Amino acid sequence: LGPKYVGLWDFKSRTDEELSFRAGDVFHVARKEEQWWWATLLDEAGGAVAQGYVPHNYLAERE
Rank of each mutant, 00 (worst) to 15 (best):
L41P: 00
G24N: 04
K12Q: 15
G2L: 14
S20I: 04
A39F: 04
P3C: 12
W9V: 08
L42I: 09
L19Y: 04
G24M: 04
P3Q: 12
L42C: 06
L19H: 01
K4R: 11
D10P: 07
T15G: 12
L1F: 13
W36Y: 12
K12G: 05
Y58G: 05
R22E: 07
V29E: 02
G47Q: 15
G47I: 14
P3S: 10
A30R: 08
A45P: 02
V6S: 03
P55V: 06
G7I: 07
G24P: 02
S13C: 08
N57Y: 11
T40N: 04
R14L: 10
D16W: 08
L8C: 11
A30H: 15
V29W: 05
H28D: 08
R62E: 14
R62S: 14
W9S: 06
A48K: 07
R22H: 11
E17V: 11
Q51D: 08
K32F: 09
G24Q: 03
L8F: 02
A45Y: 14
W38C: 07
F27A: 00
A39Y: 04
H28L: 15
D10S: 07
D16S: 13
D16R: 09
G2V: 14
K32T: 09
A60S: 10
R22Q: 10
R31H: 09
E33R: 06
A50P: 01
E17A: 12
H56L: 08
W37E: 00
A60I: 14
H56W: 14
E33L: 09
G52S: 01
A48H: 08
G52R: 03
E17G: 12
F21L: 01
E44M: 08
E61Y: 11
D10C: 11
Y5Q: 03
G24F: 03
A30C: 13
G46Q: 05
F21E: 00
L8N: 03
A60D: 06
G46R: 03
D43A: 03
Y5C: 06
D10T: 06
A45T: 13
L59R: 02
H56C: 15
G52I: 04
W37R: 00
T40S: 08
H56G: 15
F21V: 03
L41G: 00
K4N: 10
F27T: 01
F27I: 04
A23I: 05
A50R: 11
E17L: 14
R14Q: 12
W9F: 13
D16K: 11
L8Y: 04
T40E: 08
T40W: 12
W38Y: 12
A45N: 15
R31I: 09
A50W: 06
Q35E: 13
A60E: 12
Y5A: 01
A39I: 04
E61R: 11
L41T: 02
R31M: 08
Y53D: 00
A50T: 07
L8G: 02
G2A: 13
A50S: 08
D16T: 10
W37T: 01
K4Y: 15
K12C: 14
V6Y: 11
Y58E: 00
V49R: 08
Y58M: 07
F21K: 00
P55N: 06
D16L: 10
E63G: 12
K12H: 13
D16Y: 07
N57I: 07
R14H: 10
V29Y: 04
A50G: 09
Q35I: 11
R14I: 10
S20H: 02
D10Y: 08
A39T: 02
P55E: 05
L1Y: 12
V49Y: 06
H56Y: 14
E18G: 11
E17K: 14
V54A: 01
A30Y: 13
A48W: 09
V29S: 00
F11M: 01
K32P: 04
E61T: 10
A60Y: 10
P55Q: 04
A30L: 15
K4E: 13
T40V: 15
H28F: 15
E33D: 10
G52L: 03
E17Y: 12
E33N: 08
A48I: 14
R31W: 14
S20W: 06
G46S: 05
S20F: 04
R62F: 15
Y5D: 01
D16N: 12
A60P: 03
S13E: 02
W38R: 01
G7A: 15
D10Q: 07
L8T: 02
T40H: 09
Y58D: 01
V26D: 01
V49M: 08
E63A: 12
A45F: 14
R62C: 15
Y5E: 00
F27K: 00
E17F: 13
Y53C: 06
